[in-house]
């Protein structure tokens, strides 16, 4: 009884540790349940049965930042919300990623005024910007798939 019997006839697969880790990380991203505005509605439908985000291994929206590694900033961030958002980001364990979903999170969108942060990249580092007002679920899924590709290529050194 060795490993060969459990794996079947696959033989030996060799890869680098970086690739293996990147593959594992990219296919089990747990996004944080964090909706700020109308984009959150699209995020909910992305995750629900019709668009089914769980096909890509990220069906678990966690309500706690301690258990999540992806923050989808879905909606406009008001100046009063900004310190809260940064606090939540700091509470997430590394490695962690951020998607700015929609125009408001990316650059302020139509809210070019005193109340709204002009792009969430003023507070947290953003990995993927998803355009749209709000982006359709397909667009968000595309953004997430791009993030997965990015994670797969990420060297381990970055998180040491």
């Amino acid at each position: 009884m060795g490993i060969e019997q459990k794996l079947g006839d696959m033989g030996v697969v060799t890869t680098t540790l970086e690739k293996a880790v990147g593959w594992a990380r990219s296919n089990a991203i747990w996004p944080m349940l964090f909706g700020l505005a109308c984009c959150a509605i699209e995020m909910m439908s992305t995750q629900a049965s019709r668009y089914d985000l769980s096909r890509f291994g990220m069906e678990l929206m966690r309500a706690s930042p301690r258990q999540s590694d992806l923050m989808i900033v879905a909606g406009r961030v008001s100046r009063k919300m900004a310190p809260v958002l940064r606090n939540l980001y700091d509470q997430m364990p590394e490695p962690k990623w951020v998607i700015a979903m929609g125009d408001c999170a990316s650059c302020g969108g139509v809210f070019n005024n005193y109340a709204v942060v002009q792009g969430v990249d003023e507070i947290v580092p953003v990995d993927v910007y998803v355009a749209g007002c709000p982006p359709r679920p397909e667009t968000l899924i595309d953004g997430i798939l791009r993030l997965q590709e990015k994670i797969k290529k990420e060297p381990l050194k970055k998180w040491q």
């Binding site: 100046r79 009063k80 310190p83 302020g108 070019n112 005024n113 005193y114 109340a115 002009q118």
Partner: peptide, 23 residues
């Protein structure tokens, strides 16, 4: 009550610019 406690100024006054960023 609406803005953060450390906010400077009163934004609905007419002398405050409408836009924060130049388009």
């Amino acid at each position: 009550i609406v803005l953060p406690n450390d906010y400077v100024g009163h934004p609905l006054l007419k002398e405050v610019p409408v836009q924060v960023e130049e388009v």
